Computed example of a mutant assay.
Amino acid sequence: MSTLEEHVDIDVPVDVAWESLHRVESYPRFLEGVREARTEGANRAHLDVEAGGRAQAFDTQITDRADTHTMEWKTTSGPDLAGSFSLLPIDQQHTRVQARIEYDPSVVREAFGGPKGFAQATAIERLVRNDLEQFKGVVEQGR
């Protein structure tokens, strides 16, 4: 199992970032490859994704730890992926968003194609970094 951690600092209070993170329908605006996203009942989301020329649909289970501003998620269908988003207040107007993704490289390659080994890890890092930057832009513009 591989683990990736990335973060970005955004210019909004932690509560604004927390609310934005929970707007599942806005995920296509900042998550590359997500074509549609919707909530499906309490603590569940469905995502339609296109990656590596392949269309995939998967469901996720979401667990909130609101007291620490942490959202944990794991897929319940599709490729076996899990992770978390932790929001850490820097001060009253700034928040650090930390993403942690756990994945099996062979599962990712089988599900989405792409490179192997170090090249795959680099591609995933770049993707997560870009998604966090996109999230930053969406949240800061929506203020």
Rank of each mutant, 00 (worst) to 15 (best):
T3W: 05
L4I: 12
H7P: 00
V8K: 10
V14Q: 04
D15Q: 05
W18C: 00
S20F: 08
S20L: 04
L21C: 06
V24W: 07
E25H: 08
E25D: 12
S26P: 00
S26E: 10
L31I: 13
L31H: 01
G33F: 12
G33D: 05
G33R: 06
V34W: 13
E40M: 12
G41D: 10
G41F: 13
R44P: 03
A45F: 11
D48I: 12
D48V: 14
V49H: 12
V49K: 04
E50F: 06
E50H: 03
G52R: 03
Q56N: 13
A57D: 12
A57M: 10
Q61L: 15
T63M: 01
T63L: 05
D64G: 00
R65T: 02
A66I: 00
D67L: 00
T68R: 04
T70V: 05
T70P: 00
T70Q: 02
T70D: 00
M71K: 06
W73P: 00
W73T: 02
S77F: 15
S77I: 11
P79D: 14
S84H: 01
S86V: 04
S86R: 12
T95H: 10
T95L: 10
R96F: 13
V97Y: 01
Q98E: 11
Q98V: 10
Q98D: 05
R100L: 04
E102H: 08
E102K: 02
Y103R: 02
Y103K: 02
P105A: 15
P105L: 14
V107W: 06
V108F: 15
A111W: 15
F112R: 04
K116Q: 08
G117R: 08
G117D: 10
E125W: 14
L127M: 13
V128Y: 12
G142A: 14
R143H: 10
